[in-house]
Design a protein around this nucleic acid. Structure first.
Lengths: 252, 252
DNA sequence: TACCCTCATTTGTATAGACAAATTTAAGGA
DNA sequence: TCCTTAAATTTGTCTATACAAATGAGGGTA
C-alpha cells in the first residue's frame, strides 16, 4: 500500500482560527479539509508528534483533538500505523438539500413562504444545557411555513443566536425565509443534521393539514462558527415525502 | 433549588469492574445508575475531587470519564455548580447513518446480528424500471436484524446485484452483516441516501417489537459503480432514534 | 430592599513526563 | 523462501500540576 499523505510538502494550511480552546481549534483545523473533501478517505494524518510541533501544543492537547475526530468517525487510528481519514468520512460530508425553495420548484410547483411567528427571547437554563449556548443569550425565534402551490409542505421552527448574529434582529423575515438569508450573510465553520421520525401531533397536524398521528420527518440542523452555535432549525416534513439526504462519492 | 444528591451518605456502590481502561470503567460505573433510572434527571454527581478519592484515579482520568458522559448527553456540567444527570438522559441516543454496529457499541450496548432471510432471484420487469437494473439480472436478497443488547434496533432489507458483485454469492452473511462486507470488498463510485418517515406496519412492528402505528425512519441507500447499481438497502429504524445524517463544513 | 464586591468551589484547559500496547518494518536464521 | 525475532514508531492511558473561567453564596453598603 502507498497511502496518500496529507501535506506531502508540509505546506498545507491547517491554520488555527484563534477562537475557543486550543484542542477545539486543532480539531476544526483538521476536520475542515476532511469535511470539505480535500483530504480523501485513506489520507494519512500527520502523527501526533508532528502536529505538536506544527501547532505548538502539547501531546495531550493534540491527542484530545484527534480523539474527538475519531469519536466523530471522521478519522480512524491505529497504533504504529497512524491516523487516517475514515473510509466513510465522505458520507459525513453530505451535501444536504437545505434549500426548500429549490426542492419545491424542482418538482414544478410554485414556492410560497409565510412567517407565522417572530419573537425575541432569552435562552433558558434548561435549554442552555442542551444547546451549549449560555443561559440568558438573546435569541430570535421564528416559525414559518413553506408551501408547494397552495399546500403547506414544510414547517420550520428556527432559533437564531443574536449574540452571534446581531444583524438578524434588523431583518423582518416577512418575505424572505431565514435559511437563505443566513447562508448568504453568516459564515459558519461547521454544521450538522439530525433526523428522526415523529408523529405529527396537533400543531403540525393543523399547520400541514394532515392526520395527527401521521408519521413525519423531523430534520434538525445546527450550525456553528467555532464553538459558538449560530442557529438551530427544526423542519417537519410530512412522512410520505421522501427527502434526498445526500449523494456521496466512493473510492476512486 | 435543592437538587437531589447522589450518594447522600457516600456509601453508594459505584464499583469498577476491572475490565478495560480506567476512564472507561469510571464512565460505565456512573452511566449505569443513570441508564437504569436509579439516578433521576437533576441528581447531582459527586464533584471530580471526590470521585478522584473514591476511585483512586487522577483528576484528568475522572475528568475524561465525565466529559465522555457529557458528550454522550447523559450528564450536564456547569462550573461551580457541578455535574447533574441530564434532563432527558435516556432519549439522547444518536445513531450514525450506515454504521450501525459502531453506534450501538458507542452507546455501550452489545451489538448483535441475525440473518433472517437469504434468497436468490432475478430482477422483475417492474423493478427494473425503478432501479435501472436490467430485467433478469440475478440478485441476492437478504433480510436481517441488528440488535442493541437483546432489543432489535434496526431492520435491513438488502438486494445485491450479482452481475456486478458475483463474489457475494459465495458469502453466507450468517455472521457478518452485508454492509461492512460490501464496504470492504466492493469499491463504488457513487452513493445516495433517501429518507422518509413511515408507519411501522405489521411486519416491522413484529420484528422491532413496537406498536404498528409507531413512526419509523426508512433509510434507503443505493450505491453504483459507474452506471451499474451495486446494491440497494432499506433500513427501518424506530422513530425515537435520532440519526445523525451528516456533518458539513462551511467556508473557512 | 437592591446592588455590588469578594471569596470559595467546581469545572475547563493545558503542559510535561512516563510507561504500556499494538503493529509495522526490518533483520536474522532455518 | 519462509518463519521467527527484534526494533522502532505511533497511539493509548495515566499521573501530577498549574492556572483560568464561571458562578453560587455570603456579606457589606447605600
Amino acid at each position: 500500500m502507498n497511502p496518500r499523505q496529507a501535506n506531502p510538502e508540509g505546506d498545507e494550511e491547517l491554520r488555527l482560527d484563534g477562537t475557543g480552546p486550543l484542542h477545539d481549534q486543532i480539531r476544526r483545523a483538521i476536520a475542515a479539509p476532511i469535511l470539505s473533501g480535500a483530504w480523501k478517505p485513506g489520507t494519512r494524518i500527520a502523527p501526533e508528534m508532528e502536529l505538536m510541533r506544527r501547532f505548538g501544543a502539547s501531546r495531550m492537547t493534540v491527542n484530545r483533538a484527534l480523539r474527538a475526530l475519531a469519536d466523530q468517525g471522521l478519522i480512524a487510528r491505529r497504533r504504529r500505523a497512524g491516523s487516517f481519514v475514515a473510509p466513510r468520512a465522505g458520507e459525513h460530508a453530505v451535501t444536504f438539500i437545505g434549500d426548500i425553495r429549490r426542492e419545491i420548484e424542482a418538482r414544478g410547483e410554485r414556492y410560497g413562504y409565510e412567517l407565522a411567528l417572530r419573537r425575541q427571547s432569552r435562552v433558558t437554563p434548561s435549554l442552555s444545557l442542551a444547546s451549549g449556548v449560555a443561559a440568558g443569550t438573546p435569541v430570535l425565534h421564528l416559525a414559518c411555513r413553506h408551501f408547494a402551490g397552495a399546500r403547506p409542505a414544510v414547517l420550520e421552527d428556527r432559533w437564531i443566536n443574536l449574540a452571534a448574529v446581531p444583524d438578524a434582529e434588523a431583518v423582518s423575515f416577512e418575505r424572505e425565509p431565514p435559511g437563505p438569508w443566513l447562508l448568504e450573510n453568516v459564515p459558519f465553520t461547521e454544521g450538522e443534521h439530525r433526523i428522526a421520525a415523529i408523529r405529527a401531533g396537533t400543531t403540525a397536524s393543523a399547520l400541514l393539514a394532515i392526520a395527527p398521528d401521521a408519521p413525519c420527518l423531523s430534520v434538525e440542523r445546527r450550525t456553528w462558527r467555532g464553538r459558538e452555535m449560530l442557529t438551530f432549525a427544526r423542519f417537519v416534513y410530512p412522512g410520505e415525502s421522501h427527502i434526498l439526504v445526500g449523494r456521496f462519492a466512493g473510492a476512486s
